[in-house]
Simulated scan of single mutants.
Amino acid sequence: MSTNPAVDDLRGLTGWDGGRATIDWAPLSEALGLGVPDDFRALTQAFPYGVFQEWVRLMHPTNAPDAASWVANLRGACDGLRLWRDKFVPDFGYGLYPEPGGLLPWAEMDNEEYFCWVTQGPPNDWPTVVCNRALERGDAHPTGAARFLVGLFRGTVDEPFLADWRDDFTRTPVSFEAF
């Protein structure tokens, strides 16, 4: 069990009882230049790099050889979104990491959607916003990564932007496959 109830709920939904990852967050936070929310730390320590419901992959730090590579992966995602924003959606409404208060992806879907934090205020208070590569976006959800995933898989997160995948997300049992 973790010290995070949402992570425990997610483990219960998936039946995942695999090993825990050991992650040194100090160099990751330093390379990122931001703190990392406690629930994401607990989530990535309870679940290895893998996929939920065949669609959702965490931007997992163990999927990179070191802190600089993990941050480069996050920056790469944001740089791609920034190019699109600057050319086609200048009134997007959010900055993109490393811009102050910018969106920072914490998970991605195979269809090129990102689950992002709005990096404004203390990390444990960052809401989640879903957007795609064309910067169409959903609403801000006042919840962290683990609670957002639990709500998504239980069908209690009302995110019209993800409505096309609702049946996939709420299929039981919730699947998790480690890579």
Rank of each mutant, 00 (worst) to 15 (best):
D8R: 12
E30T: 14
F40R: 09
E113I: 04
P127D: 06
A163N: 13
G95K: 02
Q45L: 01
R20V: 11
F40T: 09
G138K: 03
G15E: 04
A64H: 11
P27N: 10
L96G: 01
C131I: 05
F52C: 06
L74N: 04
P100A: 13
Y49I: 03
L58G: 11
K87C: 06
H60W: 08
D39K: 08
S69K: 05
G102S: 06
S2D: 12
I23V: 12
L103D: 00
P123M: 02
H141M: 09
V130L: 02
L34Y: 13
F161Y: 05
P127R: 08
P48Q: 03
F179Q: 14
R137H: 14
F47W: 05
V36W: 13
L103K: 03
F47V: 07
R41P: 01
P98T: 14
G33M: 10
Q45I: 03
V129G: 04
Y97N: 10
V157D: 03
E108R: 01
T119D: 00
L32T: 06
A77P: 01
V56H: 01
D9N: 15
G35R: 07
A163Y: 08
T119P: 11
W126Q: 08
T44V: 12
A64E: 09
L152P: 07
D158S: 13
I23F: 04
A134I: 06
A72H: 07
C131K: 04
T62V: 12
W55R: 14
Q120H: 12
D125E: 15
G101W: 04
D164S: 11
V56P: 05
P37C: 07
G12A: 13
L152G: 09
W117K: 01
A134R: 15
A42R: 12
R11P: 00
R57H: 05
A6L: 07
E99V: 06
M59P: 07
R82G: 06
M1W: 12
N73P: 02
V129P: 02
V157W: 01
R147G: 09
S2K: 09
P27G: 11
G12W: 02
E136V: 08
G101Q: 07
V89C: 14
D79A: 13
T172F: 11
L135Q: 02
V36M: 15
N4E: 15
E112K: 13
G151P: 04
N111C: 03
T170H: 07
S29T: 14
A26L: 13
M1H: 14
V118I: 13
F153M: 07
A68S: 15
R133V: 01
A107T: 06
D86K: 05
P5R: 12
E159R: 03
R85M: 03
R82V: 06
F52N: 04
V174F: 05
T119I: 05
G138Q: 03
G12D: 09
E54L: 10
L34Q: 12
A146N: 10
A42D: 15
D164N: 08
E136D: 13
S175N: 01
A31M: 07
A31K: 04
T128M: 06
L96E: 00
V129D: 00
C78G: 02
G151F: 06
G121I: 10
R41T: 09
R154P: 00
G19N: 12
L10R: 14
Y97C: 10
T3D: 14
R82K: 15
L135D: 00
D8K: 09
F52D: 03
P90L: 03
G138V: 05
L83Q: 15
E30D: 13
A42T: 09
R147H: 10
T156L: 09
P27K: 00
H60S: 09
D9I: 00
